[in-house]
Design a protein around this nucleic acid. Sequence first.
DNA 1: CAGGGAAGCGAAAGCGGTTTCGCAAATCAC
DNA 2: GTGATTTGCGAAACCGCTTTCGCTTCCCTG
Lengths: 332, 332
Amino acid sequence: MADQVITLSDVAAAAGVSLSTASKALNGTDRISEATREHVRLTADRLGFRHNALARSFARGRSQTIGVLTHRASNPFTRVVLATAATELGAKEQAILLYDARMEEQHDVTESILQLRARRIDGVIVIGTSTSFRTPSFTSRFDVPVINAFTVPADPQDTTITADDFAIGRLAISHLLAGGRRRIAHLTAEPHDIAAQRRAEGAGELLAEAGLEWAAPVRFGRWREEWGEQAAAELLAEVPDLDAIFCGSDAIGRGVERAVRASGRQVPGDVALIGVDNWESLMHDQRGTRHLTTIDVGLEEIGRRVANRLLEGNLEPGVEYVEPHVVVADTV
Amino acid sequence: MADQVITLSDVAAAAGVSLSTASKALNGTDRISEATREHVRLTADRLGFRHNALARSFARGRSQTIGVLTHRASNPFTRVVLATAATELGAKEQAILLYDARMEEQHDVTESILQLRARRIDGVIVIGTSTSFRTPSFTSRFDVPVINAFTVPADPQDTTITADDFAIGRLAISHLLAGGRRRIAHLTAEPHDIAAQRRAEGAGELLAEAGLEWAAPVRFGRWREEWGEQAAAELLAEVPDLDAIFCGSDAIGRGVERAVRASGRQVPGDVALIGVDNWESLMHDQRGTRHLTTIDVGLEEIGRRVANRLLEGNLEPGVEYVEPHVVVADTV
DNA sequence: CAGGGAAGCGAAAGCGGTTTCGCAAATCAC
DNA sequence: GTGATTTGCGAAACCGCTTTCGCTTCCCTG
């Protein structure tokens, strides 16, 4: 525990070579004979040597830490991306330094940016709140790579990895069609919400390709369970022969399900339901279980990919979409 | 952007003092006249100087980063604690370095520990998976402070901050009693699950204090929605005059609610429901809404407190419990 | 066999701060 | 007014590693 810490010069001395030789040997850099390299490696192992990461970072000028800018880290979607990215980065010995700011407030975020630069971070991940809101562009405010996650990019030249709402809509309908449903309706969030719009568009497109139409006009409302319940009740009264409802989110879906059951219909016997978000996975692990069939938008994949792209330095400008996937459960 | 970086010696030169004086002035350490201190500060500001955090960390031997050991970062509860702690730490310029390991596997975690020590981390947070499982003790394996979060500590001398399952049970019953309920049952998880046990004990205790008994024996089963549904159906058949069910988790509660409604009863008119976890908060923010009344176990508070304790160096040995609170919604 | 180039290694200069220590001047006690 | 402290500041060592540069030695070419 309190044992003397071994430094590189200890290793060099023990191996009978110079400090610089030892450094090069262990780093695999520069021209060193294979014999001495191996010899240094062995003595280093024997002594239990580990680089002092602080000294190394200092000398190299690279901090082994990635800055993360979030809008509101308490957002559950943000958390998933954050935790996944942090795990991925940690596995590669990269720390993260998180600044949680209201990105709209210039002053606040400017201070954070200065802090991050002072820390000589190696890269930046900007995590947006959703695909509904545009996140300001920070790319030009750093001299290290910046990558955006889970957001609608303000600048199309920024590197962005995000969910594919259009594909989500298509996938939902495709799954319902595969289940034999034909009289399908869609209940979703605010009409000005970008994610809601794209999901509706994607869904409408696939429906049209199948030669079908919505069984009722798409209803826009709120991302809320209670709205789902109320809207579904009205919808079922107007269009009694529905056989499926595509719900804009799992929260809405929960409300819809209650209304459908309250109307005396069976789920999925009479009406199939599919949501979006994979809400239940946020509770699964040992606990929880699947009930509502849903579309997973791929938040974890976003987190993983963002971390890896950044480390690889693989930052092509433009938006890269993550493929959604169906999570099969009891409601289709 | 690519503008010359200002170093401390630039500041010293501009202020007409020595490097060491400049350092002390800005750090508020050592004896420096207030006049020169202020003068140095002003020139530093004027030049836009920021400490090179790397150099500083190196010189001081403190990394400004906290190591985090998790069992499985993908666990939703872990994520909440992690994200909250990271936010709190970030606000104080502390980075985090996350190692996600199966803590049971010695080899794996030993490597992580060595990495963390090489990084000269300033402290360690160990996040458990829940209050159901015991996490091995890592305190003695570091020479920096270690604090455990959301776990049953293996060593009572370790510093641990976690949820108070006993209080959770009491609180749930107290809320139901305040709502005028008297015929109360409890459906919860596996009988060997520590969290489930304590919640049941706490609930039973408060019930006894109120001069009441369970309307039916406590039923232990699984942390699953479907189990809740099935168990509630049976329970209602056996004890038709129940007026409340304390559900061991929100997932169970969801299932219970379906069963109650399916039996023709109203929620909360005929039967009140209360869960545990504040599941919906994991989805709230802009979206989602409250439906199920529940007990929030205080995960965010755990994250916050763990971060702050560590920074303050305020690490008394023993377990500190976070107070749960009721989240009022529609089912009581 | 002379000369040029490459291979292998070491000396030393950083990287940009913090911190110890010593010295001169100012302040204090008596 | 003298000696003992205290105050304010600068010189320089140091943190542990990376990296440049130069010096040998060896090999190859013609």
